[in-house]
Design a protein around this nucleic acid. Structure first.
Lengths: 228, 228
DNA sequence: AATGATTTCTACACGCCGTTCAATGTATGC
DNA sequence: GCATACATTGAACGGCGTGTAGAAATCATT
């Protein structure tokens, strides 16, 4: 690795770091190439040596953030022993909410439409992080899966890549479990999204307790006993 | 009402209509005063006679859209007889999803952060629509409320205005039911938000069926029997 | 009918944004 | 040592929202 490559990598990292800082300070719309360049003592045009367009920068930011979120959730899950599937689900859910509260702008960047006109690419690292999240969640559901397979869904109902991925990771798991996983995902997502976007702030002072209740109900609905 | 006031009202309505049209066509970021003025054959500055700032325009748009959403949900609910509380909940949930799919940009405007730098005002018509939605949802929960009141929550845990509103509308309903209502709201919101923001599109082709399953599970979790 | 007050509109300046492009300087690899 | 590839600059373009100043139109009053 030449000196030039090293400098280039450093500059690339600095651009991302400053972009995240700007976003944390002023929201996703504060991610402007001009502001980043100003902060770095460069001109705006120079950034185009590193990212072809602003959307490219945002795309890598999203991928980084999504990966961080998934890793936080996985770490929280792995901190609970595998013979407590309910506790693992609770840990996952709580860690997602806590990460979102700690990185509200990141959450908006990942799950919202924070950047005007931005269209997420169909593949790439962000998509990979999403599949990783889905796989983790499926693992949690698989550990609880004992219910009857009604056969309401088939593998063609799901994305081929995801279906193959899950069949490889959890052999024998029926498609219905994947549908249930998506429902679980939605259930974890709903209250957090409402809270991050400020729709709970004006209604209640106890979002944490309500979310915890919801997670416990979710765990119970999977036939598990939620931890004390 | 003088002639001047009438013309003013017409122009105001036209601005809103064009703003909605632009939003439907090009997303929320397409709401630019310049574009609206261009469409109306005016200059951008002229709009400042009707809305002090762009945020004011967005605020009224949000209020209009939120009201439309709530009215759609109420209409769907009222189309089901009151002695079928489970069916009413299903109707409410399905209508919210359908409205969101028919007005994805409106959904983003209401529940997302689509407009950069926009901060929703603490009160006003939008807040009123939100309270109306919450009241409607509480009514659905109240009709199913038979469970034990564990007394986990108290009225001070909630917004005073909301608490007073609900106590007046549903006398005797405990605060725990309001917490449950917020959980129900989150549960309805989660999958729809994921779908509108394109996070389900890449995973499954059957979001409607999954949402329906989730609604039926929700109804069952309230101790009701979901309709066939 | 004419005057005065108010509203509405045009025109323009300002600063911000993303993006492009030729020119300039600099470091790398031969 | 030199040609090449690269990073960077600075200016420019078009578009955005905001705000202001003054002209024009409209209304209300006499």
């Amino acid at each position: 690795m030449s000196r030039r490559d090293r400098l280039r990598a450093e500059t690339t990292a600095e651009i991302k770091a400053i972009a995240l800082k700007l976003m944390a300070a002023g929201g996703p719309d504060a991610i402007s190439l001009r502001a980043i360049a100003r902060e770095m003592g460069m001109t705006a045009g120079a950034i185009y040596s590193y990212y072809a367009t602003r959307d490219d920068l945002v795309t890598t930011l999203i991928a980084d953030l999504y990966t961080a979120l998934v890793e936080a959730a996985e770490a929280a899950r792995d901190a609970v022993s595998a013979d407590d599937p309910g506790g693992r689900i609770l840990a996952w859910g709580e860690s997602v909410r806590e990460w979102a509260l700690a990185n509200p702008e990141g959450f908006r960047l990942i799950y919202g439409d924070a950047v005007p006109g931005y269209q997420p690419p169909a593949d790439g690292p962000a998509k990979e992080a999403e599949q990783r999240a889905c796989r983790g969640l499926t693992g949690l559901v698989a550990a609880a899966w004992g219910g009857p397979d009604k056969g309401e869904y088939g593998w063609p109902d799901f994305d081929p890549v995801l279906a193959e991925d899950i069949q490889a990771a959890f052999p024998g798991l029926p498609p219905d479990a994947v549908a249930l996983t998506i429902r679980v995902w939605g259930r974890m997502h709903g209250l957090v999204a409402l809270e991050i976007y400020g729709h709970l702030r004006t209604l209640t002072h106890e979002p944490a307790a309500i979310y915890r209740d919801e997670m416990r109900a979710l765990i119970a609905s999977l036939g598990l006993t939620p931890p004390a």
